[in-house]
């Protein structure tokens, strides 16, 4: 369409010519505080709970499984292909379906499941955020369509915050078509500024730190 037209107008407006080099942009500003793993976990859980999310610290894989089993209570659930879910035995729990690779089948499953169970590539302590990269292990819809989202985070994946994430992942697009940061349950305040959870995404979120 109007590619040349628009670019030409931009250059004319700026008084620049085609291919003219640019000055250096201001240096990137990243601030990574020092924080030990224990304090990161504590802050992370505190932040999620402040957003009405649930947290659980599991000392072992079995501990993680039994917490998840309690939340599921046998309900129909979709689990991602994250290795940790298999290692914990979560994929073998009653009602849990996993390993679905066909997008149409996966969508149907997620649309009817009560819970979606995933891993998390990273987590950000200071905001209580899960970082999910779309991959063969993680589909986009499992953490999105079911009304309940359960995520297992390995403690080594817990970063201080967004700045640290962007320092270890300066080019997220090289790894995935979709990186999503999830901070608490889905919510809206569009009618009279009254907070309602679970408007389009999950209204209930459980984070298990393993």
């Amino acid at each position: 369409m109007s590619r040349e037209h628009v670019l030409h107008k931009v250059r004319t407006a700026l008084g620049r010519s085609t291919g003219q080099p640019v000055d250096q942009p201001p240096p990137v500003r990243l601030n990574i505080p020092a924080a030990g793993i224990e304090s990161r976990i504590a802050v992370f859980c505190e932040r999620i709970e402040a957003l009405a999310g649930h947290t659980h610290r599991a000392a072992s894989l079995e501990g993680a499984r039994s917490y998840v089993e309690g939340v599921l209570a046998g309900r129909k659930s979709a689990a991602s292909n994250a290795p940790i879910l298999r290692q914990c035995g979560i994929t073998a729990l009653p009602g849990v379906e996993s390993g679905v690779m066909d997008p149409v089948a996966l969508r149907a499953l997620c649309a009817s499941a009560a819970c979606g169970i995933t891993g998390a590539d990273y987590a950000l302590a200071d905001t209580g955020t899960l970082v999910m990269l779309a991959s063969p292990q993680e589909a986009r819809l499992i953490s999105l369509l079911p009304p309940v989202h359960i995520a297992l985070v390995e403690r080594g994946r817990l970063l201080t915050g967004l700045d640290e994430l962007l320092s270890i992942l300066p080019f997220p697009a090289e790894q995935t078509s979709s990186m999503v940061l999830i901070t608490g349950p889905s919510r809206t305040a569009d009618i009279e500024q009254i907070l309602v959870r679970g408007v389009h995404g999950p209204g209930e979120i459980h984070v298990v730190v393993v």
């Binding site: 679905v100 200071d126 589909a139 986009r140 078509s177 979709s178 940061l181 349950p185 919510r187």
Partner: peptide, 28 residues
């Protein structure tokens, strides 16, 4: 905007679903 350190969802999207990804759009 709303006093949130981060909003609930922040999506960083680049291109359609990649070859081995499970879901996502075919065209972007």
């Amino acid at each position: 905007a709303t006093g949130q350190p981060l909003t609930v969802y922040t999506s960083f999207l680049s291109g359609p679903r990649r070859g081995d990804e499970i879901d996502g759009p075919d065209e972007f």
